[in-house]
Simulated assay, not measured.
Amino acid sequence: MLSTLLQLASLAALVHGHGNIATPPMRMPGDATTSACGKSVVADIVRDKTSHVEGLPELAAKDTGYKAAQCNLWLCRGVQFADNKANVQTYKPGQTVEIKINLTIPHVGNANVSIIDTKTNAIIGKPLLNWPSGYADEKQFYGKTLPTNQTDFKVDIPTTLGNQCATAGDCVIQWWWYGTGAKQSYESCIDFTVAEV
């Protein structure tokens, strides 16, 4: 009986999601993402906005609508800026931003929150927050809640960006988490602008 329950729990972990940004609004797919990444990828993200990235390349490869040059699945899970123009946040240098994470199934690993240049998919400067280990440790989770600083935290917008993120779509704030035991990556992006004052 116990082994059956453990098998079902493990299956549920594979089927259901794991984590995403709850606030501010994260990128979600629409027509532009469907055009770039294909219907299969979009259906998977819509079905479970908390799921990991690793399953998406296989879905994309089987979809005739997938355009690898336009759909970078390792940047915001391929979700396109064009679908998210209405959710662009406007920040000032030095402004504190509160971020809440919906973390449904923990997997111990490492995580960070960073500003990403969307043209290069590279971190600008250093991570705003970094958990080099012990993030979302499932051994600490069961019967309890995760430490607040892993699901409800604040970041400060760097004062050194200049005009690098002044144009909507050029930068995102990305929450990225890698479950080392599960070998799964989770990422969510917030579109924003910040202009030099």
Rank of each mutant, 00 (worst) to 15 (best):
K126Y: 11
W74Q: 11
D44N: 12
K119A: 12
D152V: 11
S188F: 03
A22C: 11
G94V: 06
C71Q: 01
P25H: 15
A13F: 02
T4K: 09
H18P: 02
L129P: 03
A82R: 06
S10A: 12
G65L: 06
C37L: 03
K85L: 10
T64I: 11
C37K: 00
R77G: 00
F81A: 10
T118K: 07
K85N: 05
V172Y: 01
L59C: 01
L73H: 01
H107V: 03
P106G: 04
G134F: 05
C71I: 00
T96N: 15
N112S: 10
V108M: 13
P93W: 11
A60H: 02
K92V: 12
H18S: 04
Y142H: 10
L6S: 12
K85I: 10
T193I: 13
V194I: 12
V42N: 04
P147T: 05
Y178V: 01
Y91L: 13
P25D: 09
N20K: 15
L14S: 08
F81S: 05
E98D: 13
V97N: 08
H107Y: 10
F141Y: 15
Q184L: 14
G162A: 11
G30I: 11
Y142R: 12
P29N: 12
Q184M: 14
S35C: 07
T167Q: 14
L56S: 05
P25V: 02
A122M: 08
L2I: 09
M1I: 12
Q164A: 09
V97K: 04
L6I: 14
K144L: 03
V79L: 04
E138W: 11
Q80I: 02
M1Q: 11
I190M: 06
P132I: 07
T145N: 15
V42W: 00
V155W: 06
T180M: 12
V88A: 03
T118C: 07
L8E: 14
S40I: 00
N72Q: 05
T50A: 05
G134W: 04
H107W: 04
Y186A: 02
C171N: 03
P57N: 07
H52E: 06
N102M: 12
I157W: 03
G94I: 05
A22P: 01
E196N: 14
D152M: 12
N121F: 04
D63T: 09
W175P: 00
S40W: 00
N110Y: 15
A60K: 06
N110A: 07
A12P: 04
A32G: 02
T145Y: 09
A36W: 00
A195K: 15
L14D: 08
T159M: 13
V41T: 01
G109H: 03
T23N: 11
S114H: 07
G17Q: 06
L128Q: 04
K85R: 15
G125D: 13
T193W: 12
G55Y: 01
G125K: 10
N72P: 00
V42R: 00
I116H: 02
T104V: 06
G78Q: 00
V79W: 01
I116Q: 01
I123V: 13
T34G: 02
P93K: 14
G125P: 08
I45P: 00
K126D: 12
V41D: 00
I123N: 02
Q150M: 11
D117V: 08
S35I: 07
L73A: 01
Y135V: 03
T145P: 08
T90N: 09
I99N: 01
C189Q: 03
E54R: 10
D152T: 14
P127L: 08
T23S: 13
P147Q: 05
H18V: 00
